[in-house]
């Protein structure tokens, strides 16, 4: 190749590199002028430029948090899975099916993106590299929901709304918990043993380390799968026989498992027919809303706690 050509290419590259470095530095300084750095649920320190005016939510739970603290009007897009509150469904949608379309998100020109780990790390990094701050809000328990909502309040300048909502949730949960504990104290009963089913064959359940396990515990349940020490264990059928749960909760939309006949007349009915929960017909089949409350950690989680507690201890309410 022509040495002159090579030399000029090198010169162009060097100039381009120095220009971009200078540009990036000035940009950084500009950012520093009015940024707040918050820590998200992955432990990442995310600088967010203030004020935040355009937010894209990539998960229904994050959308719900935004609306509940009164910051819903800042949302410019959410997902097609959003259902609460009703006006969240009329926003433009970005795809939540992984991998999300980065183009779609960028097109909304957001100054903040909210996501969960359903989005692959590459997507989050790609957005960060485009100088769009991404907060990963994926609470693992209820007090974690409180901190996340307070964080959102700080970032969106809705502190008082966030504090109000958190206080409401706290008192709601406290009410449920005191009902249950008063009932247990009064009757001297033990906690109800529960099998939580997210799939039928094999039995896929929740254990320590999962969000749902924490909700079940808050509702006063003894989750029989918690002894397996795995966040999402596959429960051996013989464990179910041995622990003989008093109650069963079945998540929404497990194909074929929508009523008690799956237990009493299905393939393994000889086993299930002798389980206390099946004999007493003490099985709760979540409808879609109840399932959403349980699976989307946010302001509506309190209703999941109450639903489970009411199912396990109807006399306490």
């Amino acid at each position: 190749m022509n040495p002159k050509l090579i030399a000029s290419i090198i010169v162009v590259i060097v100039i381009a590199a120095s220009v971009s470095v200078v540009y990036a530095e000035t940009y950084k300084q500009k950012v520093n002028a009015s940024t707040i750095t918050v820590t998200d649920d992955l432990g990442r320190k995310v600088p967010v430029k203030l004020p935040v005016t355009r937010v894209v939510s990539m998960d229904p739970s994050n959308t719900q948090m935004m609306y509940s603290i009164g910051a819903g009007s800042l949302l410019v897009a959410d997902t097609s899975y959003d259902w609460w509150p009703a006006n969240s469904t009329s926003l433009p949608h970005v795809s939540m099916d992984s991998p999300a379309s980065v183009e779609q998100v960028v097109n909304m020109t957001p100054d903040l993106v909210l996501a969960t780990t359903i989005q692959p790390a590459q997507i989050i990094n790609q957005l960060q590299n485009l100088s769009i701050p991404v907060l990963v809000l994926e609470p693992q328990n209820i007090s974690n929901i409180y901190t996340d909502m307070l964080t959102l309040g700080k970032v969106t300048n809705h502190q008082s709304g966030a504090e109000k909502e958190v206080n409401y949730m706290k008192s709601y949960i406290h009410g449920v918990e005191s009902n249950v504990s008063a009932y247990l104290n009064l009757t001297g009963n033990k906690k109800q043993s529960l099998l939580y089913m997210m799939w039928s064959t094999p039995i896929y359940s929740v254990g320590p380390g999962s969000f749902i396990q924490n909700v079940l515990v808050d509702a006063g349940a003894y989750n029989i799968a918690s002894s397996l020490n795995s966040s999402y264990p596959t429960v051996p059928l013989e464990d179910v026989v041995n622990d003989n749960p008093q109650a069963i909760i079945v998540d929404y939309e497990i194909p074929g498992l929508t009523n008690i006949t799956w237990f009493t007349k299905g393939n393994q009915s000889q086993v299930w027919n002798n389980i206390t929960a099946v004999q007493n017909d003490n099985i709760l089949f979540f409808n879609q809303t109840e399932s959403n409350w349980m699976n989307e950690p946010g302001p509506l989680t309190i209703y999941a706690v109450k639903t489970v507690a009411q199912f396990l201890y109807p006399q306490a309410f």
């Binding site: 997210m198 799939w199 064959t201 094999p202 896929y204 051996p236 194909p255």
Partner: peptide, 13 residues
């Protein structure tokens, strides 16, 4: 979830 369990194979049923 169902398809994944099925693809991994198992004798639990």
């Amino acid at each position: 979830r169902g398809v994944l369990f099925w693809l991994l194979g198992g004798l639990y049923g």
